[in-house]
């Protein structure tokens, strides 16, 4: 399984392609980011996300722009850009597809899903399909272990995956079908996602549920059995708010909880045999 962790891309990193899209607007936005912090350099990580949102990768021009705005050298910015895995030196596709292959997801199926996707997309780890749509990468733990095996598309969650739902998902992305995260928003492009990470909201925070089935597992059980925290001035539990219980909240099996179902993407809702409810 160790071969998961090697990159088969030996292609050189293009230094500059001469078509940088860093503009006066980008520079102005970089200055805006720097002004949000007591010390401007704190904005460097957000600024590099912004570079990726404009360029589709961290380009030499982007590095120089960050350096100019912050009064650093290009080397100082490069040192930072090369430290963090989310910064990419090669162009990323419209959709960055991550498959968690850390231990828990790996044994729950992540390894087999990653193998299947490499074959299906005919790419290796950290490579992009020829149509420029999908970059496939195995990722480390993404803090969603209760939904293993987990995939991410442009850093949105896709839960309880199987090889079938995984291939359907990437097919939908390539076909341009609208895809929704079961615990997030309609999938935007990788560049658009990077702009949000830079600190420029896209107004989609209200899409999606409060959480999925695993998030609410304990709370549902507590409601079912009438367990609450000791009453302080707190009022002891959620009985007071029953009138406003959300659609996700009712106990028992719900179609929305099935992977892919809520997205309406045509991804088959494979019943999750692991879960009895």
């Amino acid at each position: 399984m160790a071969e998961n962790h090697t990159t088969s891309t030996d292609m050189p990193v293009p230094y500059s392609t001469g078509d940088s899209k860093i503009s006066e607007t980008t520079i102005a936005e970089m200055r805006e980011l720097a002004a949000r912090y007591p010390v401007g350099r704190s904005a460097l990580l957000p600024m590099l996300h912004l570079v990726q949102s404009v360029e589709g990768r961290v380009t030499p021009e982007g590095i120089e722009a960050c350096a100019d705005v912050l009064g650093l050298t290009g080397a100082e910015v490069s040192a930072v850009a090369t430290f963090y895995t989310m910064y990419k030196r090669r162009p990323v596709g419209d959709y960055h597809v991550g498959v968690c292959t850390n231990t828990l997801c790996a044994v729950m199926g992540g390894d087999l899903i990653f193998e299947r996707l490499k074959q299906h997309l005919e790419v290796g780890n950290d490579e992009t399909t020829e149509d420029g749509k999908i970059t496939l990468e195995h990722i480390e733990c993404n803090a969603a272990c209760d939904y293993a095996p987990v995939m991410m598309v442009n850093w949105e969650f896709f839960d309880d995956m199987t090889p079938e739902t995984a291939t359907q998902l990437v097919d939908d992305l390539r076909d341009g079908t609208e895809v929704k995260s079961p615990r997030g928003a309609t999938i935007c492009t990788w560049k658009e996602a990077e702009r949000v990470l830079a600190g420029f909201p896209d107004g989609r925070a209200d899409e999606g549920p409060t959480g999925g089935k695993a998030t609410l597992a304990g709370l549902r059980l507590a409601r079912e059995r009438n367990w609450t925290a000791p009453s302080g001035q707190h009022g002891g539990g959620g009985a007071a708010a029953e009138q406003t219980v959300s659609p996700e909240a009712a106990s028992g099996p719900r179609p929305e909880d099935q992977p892919g179902k809520e997205s309406g993407t045509g991804s088959p809702a494979i019943p999750d045999s692991r879960k009895e409810d």
Partner: peptide, 16 residues
């Protein structure tokens, strides 16, 4: 047994 405090409002409509 369970004592939802932090998670107590997670099932509310638009709890965020």
């Amino acid at each position: 047994m369970l004592t939802p405090v932090l998670s107590d409002n997670w099932d509310q409509i638009r709890s965020w």
